[in-house]
Every structure is written in structure tokens, then in C-alpha cells.
Design a protein around this nucleic acid. Sequence first.
DNA 1: GCGACAG
DNA 2: ATCTTGTCGC
Length: 213
Amino acid sequence: MVKVDSSFTQFLERLQQVIARLDLFPGWRPRKVRTLCGVDVSYQDRKAVAAAVLWSVEEGKIVEISQYRGEVSFPYIPGYLFFREAPLMIAAVKQLRLEPQLLLVDGHGLAHPRGAGLAVFVGLLLGRPTLGMAKSLLVGRIGPQKNSLAPISLKGKTVGFQVSPAIGRNYYVSPGYLVSVPDLPRITRMIGSSYPEALKEAHRISKVAVKSS
DNA sequence: GCGACAG
DNA sequence: ATCTTGTCGC
């Protein structure tokens, strides 16, 4: 794994700051969400496998799967996850034959120290509506819960929500691309409120794939 | 300086 | 994330 000097992380920070100034979340309000695409990455040493799982909401089943095998040389550093995982995730999604309506990325989007987490980069570079969905908080404070949703506030702004499903652990959702913070509650409800099956499957499939390689 | 810290 | 056995609980 390469050593990462501060000049390089400073460069990545500048990149995130520039991206964060763009108009990333103008709002996306579909009448219906028919297909989701869960994206996740698993590792075994430097070997990595990204899985993209296209999921039909109405049928409740997998429609298409794609995997991308690669090598990582950049370490995990909180706040710079995009540089490690975005290339793999993007490659996996691009291999899909069908075009997903909404991407679900395992990681934060707006709920990031510089407002530009992994989900922002994946969504922006693929040009698709995207949500960041993380299993734990990176930054921000949790506000009062209302209807199983509690705002994540950062510097006085709401950057996402903590979701407390009827079943399972809490998770965190924030805008990745196109979807705005005010639209988050509605979109989250449309796809079911509990941790998405598309992401569970992407996690399982990438894990199995990296072990058998 | 100290603590926190997606996957 | 990954390394790892048994074990507590529904």
C-alpha cells in the first residue's frame, strides 16, 4: 500500500472542495422508483471486487449483476474513501447492460467533512441519481427523531438523515447526486425504509467473489 | 495537544 | 473493510 503524504491528501481535499461548490442536488422527483442499483466493494489484501446489483422494487428481486475485479494501492483514510473505491464502483456500474434509475452507494454523500463523499463522486461521474447509505456516522450530529428519521446536522445545515427501521440497525442516508436533502424522506420511503436489499446483495456478492479469487 | 474517524 | 469460535438469544 502506498504511503500517502500530506501534499496528496491536500490535493484530494481541493478536488472535494471544488466538486462541493457545484450544483449537485437540484432535486429529482420520480413518480415511481422501479429499479435500484446497490454498489459495494469487498477486499482481500490488495485484491478488490466491486459488485453492482440491479434490483426491481416491484418484483422484489435481482434483475442484473455485474462485478469488477481490481487492485487497490491507496489505503483507507477517513474522508478520502472516494479515491480508493469510486473507480471500482464506477467500473462495475458501467458494465451493467440495463440503466439503473437510482444508485445506492455504500458510504456517505453530502454527510461528509467537505460535502463530497464517495457517493457524490460515483453519482456525478456516472450522471445518475444517487444516494449515499452508510452503516455508521462520519460527521455531524443527530437531531430529534420524527417518523423514524432524524436529521444529521453539520455546520448548522441538515446534510442527511439517520434512518431507524422497524427491523434492523440504524443507517445513514445523504444525497449523492441530483437528489436533494428535502426529497430524501420521500425517496427513502419509496424504496422501503429498511436497509435496501440491493445493498445487502451487493455486499454479499462482492464478498463471495473476492474470496473465490 | 486530544479525540474522532464512511469502508 | 478484514482477521476469526463459540455463544447468547429469538
